[in-house]
Amino acid sequence: MLRIQNLKCSYGSITAVHGVSLSVKEGELISIIGANGAGKSSLLLAISGLLKNWSGEILFQEIPLKGMSPPAIVRSGISMVPEGRQIFAPLSVMDNLKMGAYTIYRRGMKTEVEKDLEMILDMFPILHERVEQLAGTLSGGEQQMLAIGRALMARPKLLILDEPSMGLAPKIVDQIFNTIVTLREQGVTILLVEQNARAALKIADRGYVLETGKMVLQGSSDELLVDDDVKRAYLGQDYGDFYDGRNQ
């Protein structure tokens, strides 16, 4: 579904990503782990069209994304939940969700949008209770749920999540990862960037390890969880006992 070849991302004279290649197959949950400054978010910004200064190849369903605008990339089937959530704080929960469906509205699919709203509010009951509340007054966990719901309103074929556990209490992290597992079980293809490496790898099919902008390791999640280098660098601490469907 997604194929990246020799991706290089730059900010002026500074290169953040050095020749990275990876792939995501339909139905997979792929995790990218790495420390701060590893280039994870830069990679996602390039995929979503928000970072223009990159070279190499990004193909989504065999269509090159180079030169496409962010709205066009969303219309092609990619939605991203950005780092820090970036919800529209002055707008209500309902308006935030509707903003996520703007590409669907433009195609005249109002009935479908209403059905999707019902689905999202069933998925996150707390948002159903707060539909008229200003998004900026929600808790951090509620804002993360809203950001995921907003991305899903675009009916993505590929959902990208950038650090969904950032700044959240362990109990809320468990809830967010349970939601990711549920989405995967429903057939959503997911690319997950996450510093909580243990949590990410326990729910992923495969993983990639980025260090200082370079891909240094890849493999199945089971392989990476027992790799000595990965354990030493990234698996020293777990944030919570989230649901792991493979071990139930």
Score class of each variant (00 low, 15 high):
Ala199Cys: 13
Met153Phe: 12
Gly136Asn: 02
Ala135Glu: 15
Ala151Met: 14
Gln195His: 13
Leu183Trp: 03
Val193Ser: 11
Leu134Asn: 09
Lys157Asp: 10
Ala200Arg: 04
Gln133Asp: 10
Gly141Asp: 11
Gly136Pro: 04
Thr182Ile: 12
Glu185Gly: 11
Ile160Arg: 09
Leu183Asp: 03
Lys157Val: 13
Phe177Asn: 06
Thr189Arg: 13
Glu211Ala: 11
Gln175Glu: 13
Pro170His: 03
Glu194Val: 08
Glu142Phe: 03
Ala197Ser: 09
Glu163Pro: 10
Val131Ala: 05
Ile172Trp: 01
Asp205Ile: 08
Ala151Ile: 11
Leu191Thr: 12
Leu210Cys: 09
Leu138Lys: 09
Asn178His: 10
Leu134Gln: 12
Ser139Met: 15
Pro125Arg: 13
Leu152Gly: 07
Leu138Tyr: 14
Gly187Ala: 09
His128Trp: 08
Glu194Cys: 08
Leu138Cys: 06
Ala135Phe: 11
Gly149Glu: 02
Lys202Tyr: 04
Glu129Val: 11
Met145Ala: 03
Glu129Pro: 01
Asn196Ile: 00
Leu158Asn: 01
Ile180Thr: 05
Met145Phe: 10
Ser165Val: 00
Phe177Gln: 12
Glu211Lys: 14
Asp162Ile: 03
Ile160Gly: 01
Ala135Asp: 15
Ile126Arg: 13
Gly167Tyr: 14
Arg155Gln: 11
Met166Pro: 07
Ala204Tyr: 00
Gly141Glu: 11
Gly136Tyr: 04
Leu127Lys: 04
Phe177Ile: 05
Lys157Ser: 15
Pro164Val: 03
Leu192Tyr: 08
Arg150Lys: 02
Gln144Lys: 04
Glu185Ser: 07
Lys157Glu: 14
Asp205Val: 12
Glu185Cys: 05
Pro125Lys: 08
Asp162Pro: 09
Pro125Cys: 11
Glu129Tyr: 07
Pro164Asn: 03
Ala204Arg: 01
Val188Lys: 15
Val209Trp: 00
Ala200Val: 12
Glu163Met: 04
Ile176Asp: 04
Ile190Thr: 06
Tyr208Ser: 10
Gly141Trp: 03
Arg155Phe: 05
Glu211Ile: 08
Leu146Ala: 15
Ile160Gln: 02
Pro170Gln: 07
Arg184Cys: 07
Gln144Met: 05
Gly167Glu: 07
Ala147Phe: 10
Ile180Ser: 12
Gly167Phe: 06
Arg198Lys: 15
Val188Gln: 12
Ala199Glu: 13
Ala169Val: 01
Arg155Trp: 08
Leu161His: 14
Gly136Val: 00
Gln195Asp: 09
